[in-house]
Amino acid sequence: MIRLTVNGRDHDVDAEPDTPLLYVLRDELGLNGAKFGCGLGQCGACTVMLDGQAVFSCLTPIAILPGRNVRTIEGLGMNAVQHAFIDEQAAQCGYCIAGMVMRAQSLLEHNPHPSEQEIRQHMAVNLCRCGTHMRILAAVRRAAGAMRSARVVKP
């Protein structure tokens, strides 16, 4: 048994230590936001956050997870990043969007004022087959602005 903390809840999982986190999330915990894309860490459809950092869950063995915190799209709730993706109509087929949202969330939690280059570099490892990259980048910029505005204390 391996104990995982996912979205703030502990789960005891009976799986081999080298089982990818993606399979446990989807098959054992019923969290289907992270998608199986390539299985090689080359597309980002499976992106989740591990201790606040975006990671490919298809490459992350569950053996390294005890004592660490996993957050999935289901654990975010509707927030500024998701609203920005909706407002910018960043999703076309939607397959990549959960991974894109998680990668953007990770960036903005660590850097609330990213430059255009920082946004592009951070998001570049996640792919969108539909070609909505420009809308996705606009959504990240919009989310950054919304999150900064929310932090400003108003009289």
Rank of each mutant, 00 (worst) to 15 (best):
I119T: 00
I64W: 12
R68F: 09
A139M: 00
A124E: 12
N79H: 10
E74N: 13
G94D: 07
A90N: 02
D87Q: 07
C128N: 06
F56E: 08
M100C: 01
G75K: 01
M134H: 12
V70Y: 05
H113A: 10
C58D: 01
A45D: 12
E109T: 09
L108V: 00
P66K: 08
M134C: 06
H133M: 07
R120F: 05
R129D: 09
A84W: 04
M102N: 12
M134R: 14
A63G: 09
R120S: 14
M102L: 14
S115L: 05
L65Q: 14
C43G: 06
R129G: 12
E109R: 14
L76G: 03
C128M: 13
E109S: 13
H133Q: 15
M102Q: 03
C93S: 11
R142E: 02
L65K: 14
L76P: 08
N69G: 03
R120A: 15
L127F: 11
I119W: 00
Q117M: 07
A139C: 04
Q42N: 12
S106A: 15
A63N: 09
G94Q: 09
I97P: 11
G44H: 09
A80P: 06
A104P: 12
N126V: 13
R142Q: 13
L76R: 06
L59S: 14
C130F: 07
G67M: 01
E109L: 04
E74G: 02
N111L: 09
I86W: 04
L50R: 11
T72F: 07
L40C: 00
G44R: 10
P112D: 04
T60V: 15
A124Q: 14
C130R: 13
G77P: 06
V140K: 04
L50H: 05
Y95G: 05
P61I: 10
N79R: 13
R71H: 14
H113C: 03
C93R: 11
A54F: 10
Q105N: 03
H83T: 00
Q53R: 15
E109H: 06
Q42F: 00
G67K: 00
C43V: 01
T60Y: 07
I73H: 02
H122I: 05
A138T: 02
A45Y: 05
H133E: 09
